[in-house]
């Protein structure tokens, strides 16, 4: 079984983003960047399936600026076999364009599973996996907390609003990860060294015939109104009084 894992280079989850003074974009200069956390979970799941003997090859792909090579190296150090870097200069392509590029790659690579994150923590779109499934006309198992590949199918347990839901999908299938699927490993130093020798193929959107011109215009970006810190109450009694004032308690 072959697995394709799209990984996005995003602002590190610990960093609070700042908007540029002119309100045109988020200032990413000198900001720590990392692999999207949900994509780490996707890589981990693929590596686990390989360790279990279910998967034979893991191909990681990243679309973005040249520096996304670092993100691919992280995936390779975690256990992916090779990488594909699609260098898109300028703005990050929108989810639809990303899905179109991934669809072309999937057609070339014919993976049995594509494992993506459920959402990129920068744009918070939660779109690419579902769009990729649409473009390839394949079934989708989004927000997965459990993935069990079978013969010609995969069983996926999903985190939904009411709890959990389990679906059976024919393969090939598209799966997006939720937080409870696994706990991603840290790459060991020897594996980081080994990853340097693993191959990364470099491409452009044009190689796949995909037009990445944006459909959305960002009119502006702004930080939301700040909440003011309130008061520290002295004790439980004061808190009870406040709750009564609010009419919350009788």
């Amino acid at each position: 079984m072959k697995i394709l894992v799209p990984v996005k280079r995003v602002i590190d989850y610990n960093v609070k983003p700042r908007v540029k003074a002119d309100g045109s974009a988020v200032d990413l200069a000198n900001v720590k960047m990392s692999m999207n956390p949900f994509d780490e979970i996707a890589v981990e799941e693929a590596v686990k399936l390989k360790e279990a003997g279910t998967a034979t090859e893991i191909v990681a792909v990243s679309i973005g600026e040249q520096k996304a090579t670092e993100t691919l190296r992280t995936a390779l150090a975690m256990g992916a076999d090779r990488g594909i870097l699609v260098v898109a200069d300028g703005d990050m392509p929108e989810p639809l364009a990303v899905a179109k590029i991934l669809a072309k790659i999937a057609q070339e690579e014919s993976p049995d599973l594509v494992l993506l994150g459920k959402q990129a923590i920068d744009d918070d779109s939660n779109q690419v996996g579902q769009m990729l499934a649409a473009l390839l006309d394949l079934p989708q198992g989004t927000f997965a907390s459990k993935v069990e590949p079978g013969d010609g199918h995969v069983t996926v347990t999903r985190e939904v609003d009411g709890g959990l839901e389990t679906l059976k999908l024919t393969t090939p299938a598209i799966i997006t990860t939720d937080l409870r699927l696994n706990e991603p490993r840290y790459a060991s130093l020897p594996n980081i060294m080994k990853a340097k020798k693993k191959p990364i193929d470099e491409k452009t959107p044009a190689d796949y015939g995909v037009d990445t011109s944006p459909r959305l215009t960002v009119v502006k970006v702004a930080e939301p109104a700040k909440r003011e810190a309130g008061e520290i109450v002295a004790d439980v009694e004061t808190l009870v009084a406040k709750l009564k004032e609010m009419g919350v308690a009788a």
Binding site: E94, L96, N126, R158, R215
Partner: peptide, 18 residues
């Protein structure tokens, strides 16, 4: 979770950036 699951699939079929 239902809306988030289905809407992007429809958008891609219609070639729309959701």
């Amino acid at each position: 979770t239902t809306g988030k699951n289905v809407a992007p699939r429809i958008a891609a079929k219609l070639d729309i950036q959701m």
